Lab assay of single mutants.
Amino acid sequence: TQSIHIEKSDTAADTYGFSLSSVEEDGIRRLYVNSVKETGLASKKGLKAGDEILEINNRAADALNSSMLKDFLSQPSLGLLVRT
């Protein structure tokens, strides 16, 4: 696993530069990185398409609903625990 911390203040970007997809496997919801913008903040921090997001801001990914995800992604900083 890899811990990634991203700050939007690093650039004038209003997004982190990646998209997520939610997949249900064996009754457990998993979050995967769908795509990463080549010039985006997430790419600079090493996030890659296909990575599994285990935690966002110290909250287990399978416990997050879509409104919580939207809220986290609109925050000025983001902490991710990722399995590559």
Score class of each variant (00 low, 15 high):
residue 67 S to P: 08
residue 50 G to F: 02
residue 28 I to N: 09
residue 36 V to E: 02
residue 51 D to Q: 11
residue 71 D to P: 03
residue 15 T to R: 05
residue 64 L to C: 13
residue 35 S to Q: 10
residue 59 R to K: 12
residue 9 S to C: 00
residue 65 N to Q: 08
residue 70 K to L: 10
residue 72 F to S: 08
residue 1 T to N: 12
residue 29 R to V: 12
residue 29 R to H: 07
residue 78 L to M: 13
residue 19 S to A: 10
residue 71 D to A: 11
residue 66 S to A: 14
residue 60 A to D: 06
residue 38 E to F: 08
residue 22 S to V: 11
residue 49 A to P: 14
residue 34 N to W: 05
residue 70 K to G: 10
residue 51 D to H: 09
residue 1 T to C: 08
residue 38 E to W: 04
residue 39 T to L: 09
residue 15 T to A: 07
residue 61 A to L: 11
residue 27 G to P: 00
residue 72 F to R: 03
residue 46 G to P: 07
residue 34 N to I: 11
residue 65 N to M: 04
residue 21 S to K: 15
residue 4 I to K: 01
residue 6 I to S: 02
residue 22 S to D: 08
residue 33 V to F: 06
residue 7 E to P: 03
residue 68 M to P: 01
residue 3 S to L: 15
residue 34 N to M: 13
residue 65 N to W: 06
residue 50 G to S: 00
residue 75 Q to R: 12
residue 28 I to P: 04
residue 23 V to W: 06
residue 39 T to Q: 13
residue 10 D to I: 05
residue 16 Y to A: 02
residue 23 V to A: 07
residue 73 L to M: 15
residue 68 M to K: 10
residue 48 K to H: 08
residue 63 A to G: 13
residue 46 G to Q: 07
residue 39 T to I: 15
residue 79 G to T: 15
residue 19 S to Q: 12
residue 30 R to T: 04
residue 2 Q to W: 13
residue 79 G to F: 11
residue 30 R to F: 00
residue 52 E to M: 04
residue 11 T to N: 14
residue 67 S to C: 14
residue 36 V to C: 05
residue 70 K to T: 12
residue 10 D to S: 10
residue 73 L to D: 12
residue 28 I to R: 14
residue 54 L to Y: 03
residue 28 I to D: 06
residue 48 K to M: 09
residue 12 A to M: 11
residue 42 A to H: 00
residue 17 G to H: 05
residue 8 K to N: 06
residue 80 L to N: 04
residue 69 L to W: 12
residue 77 S to V: 05
residue 9 S to D: 02
residue 8 K to R: 08
residue 1 T to H: 00
residue 12 A to K: 14
residue 30 R to V: 03
residue 51 D to S: 06
residue 29 R to E: 07
residue 28 I to L: 09
residue 66 S to F: 08
residue 52 E to N: 04
residue 38 E to H: 10
residue 7 E to N: 09
residue 55 E to D: 03
residue 63 A to L: 11
residue 3 S to D: 11
residue 69 L to S: 07
residue 33 V to W: 00
residue 73 L to Q: 09
residue 52 E to W: 02
residue 17 G to V: 01
residue 77 S to P: 04
residue 9 S to R: 11
residue 26 D to S: 11
residue 68 M to W: 00
residue 80 L to G: 05
residue 64 L to Q: 00
residue 58 N to R: 06
residue 44 K to M: 07
residue 34 N to Q: 12
residue 76 P to C: 06
residue 8 K to T: 01
residue 82 V to D: 05
residue 31 L to N: 02
residue 34 N to Y: 06
residue 6 I to F: 07
residue 51 D to V: 05
residue 80 L to R: 04
residue 3 S to M: 15
residue 76 P to K: 11
residue 2 Q to F: 15
residue 10 D to H: 06
residue 33 V to C: 06
residue 73 L to C: 08
residue 25 E to H: 12
residue 73 L to G: 04
residue 24 E to I: 09
residue 67 S to T: 15
residue 19 S to P: 05
residue 77 S to W: 03
residue 53 I to T: 01
residue 50 G to T: 03
residue 27 G to N: 12
residue 78 L to Y: 06
residue 35 S to N: 08
residue 71 D to Q: 11
residue 54 L to T: 01
residue 5 H to K: 05
residue 81 L to G: 06
residue 65 N to T: 14
residue 47 L to M: 07
residue 47 L to A: 03
residue 63 A to C: 12
residue 53 I to V: 09
residue 24 E to A: 07
residue 42 A to P: 00
residue 41 L to E: 09
residue 41 L to W: 04
residue 79 G to D: 15
residue 35 S to M: 06
residue 8 K to D: 01
residue 6 I to Y: 05
residue 34 N to V: 11
residue 25 E to F: 05
residue 44 K to C: 04
residue 13 A to H: 14
residue 32 Y to T: 05
residue 42 A to E: 04
residue 32 Y to F: 12
residue 19 S to N: 12
